[in-house]
Amino acid sequence: MNRLIIVTFSLYVFLVAPLHARAQEAFPNRPITIAVPFPPGGVADLTARPVAAAMERVLKNPVIVVNKTGAAGAVGMSYVANSKPDGYTLLMALSSISIIPEADKLFDRQPAYTMDQLVPLALISADPTVLVVRGDSPWKSVKELVADAKKRAGEISYSSSGIYGTLHMAMEMFSHAAGIKLKHVPYGGAGPALTAILGGHVDALASGPAVVIPHIKANKLRPLAGWGAKRVASLPEVATFKELGYDAEFYIWAGMFAPRGTPEPVLKKLRDVIRQTVQEPDFKDAMTKLETPIAYLDAPDFQKFWDKDAKMLTDAVKRIGRIEEKK
């Protein structure tokens, strides 16, 4: 009896069930999933939700957001990279998508995914990070900070969202451009990194503008410079690194990807839908509330943007190298 149940069950699971999933019809005829490789409440999640809601209205087809978290995003990204290229599983990724394969290479491990496994659909938003120091710190400008850092190499500390994380990369680009050495204290996410500087345990932080602006207004933090090509709209008095003569440019961007191999008509359809999505008033309204600027780029332009960004990031990862070998 038992054996019979087991045998039928096993046969079904491993032989028959995969066949059911083959059916192919007009796209889309079932819910589309946008996988977010980060926990709810993060930038990627908060961007993906209004995108999904607006896409649903445009497509008249359910679009679901699923958080596939783990390993600093590697779990969710490799999930989409390895899922069936049929346009039903999409990815909302952040800049870190270019970092993880490079970090894997650095440690000689089997990469969780490679960038070739994904094709870009569209860039949704790009937010330049800003450099903040504590409100009671002596540095009033980047120049003062750099001068002090040159005097006391490796003494001024900064927190980050994690080793090889986006905030770490931004700081690495700045300190490389300025020729200084700072002390890195990694934390487990952007939230703890912000808490650390507010508590006075580190001196500086690179952060997305939206979360630090209230603390800047309360004089707890002081902005020194931004990483963008243009100044941040809500912080017009803060200069960019480019203006100050440091070659550092960095954005926390959110873009959508599909697995490589997705049929061309499906990709075209998705790109059309996203183009309409970003013009929806509800979507614009949601992004304004989040203080995240929409920076829509269609696939060809996004590909160029991504190539350039990925090059900068991989160079930064290579410069940092393995931490413990530089001692």
Binding site: M1, N2, I5, I6, F9, Y12, V13, F14, A17, P18
Partner: peptide
């Protein structure tokens, strides 16, 4: 079986096996 058969069928089979078998 969970991600091949889906939740409902997996649990159904599992329970039948446990309760009957």
């Amino acid at each position: 079986a969970l991600e091949r058969l889906g939740y409902r069928l997996t649990i159904l089979f599992g329970l039948v096996f446990l309760v009957k078998g």
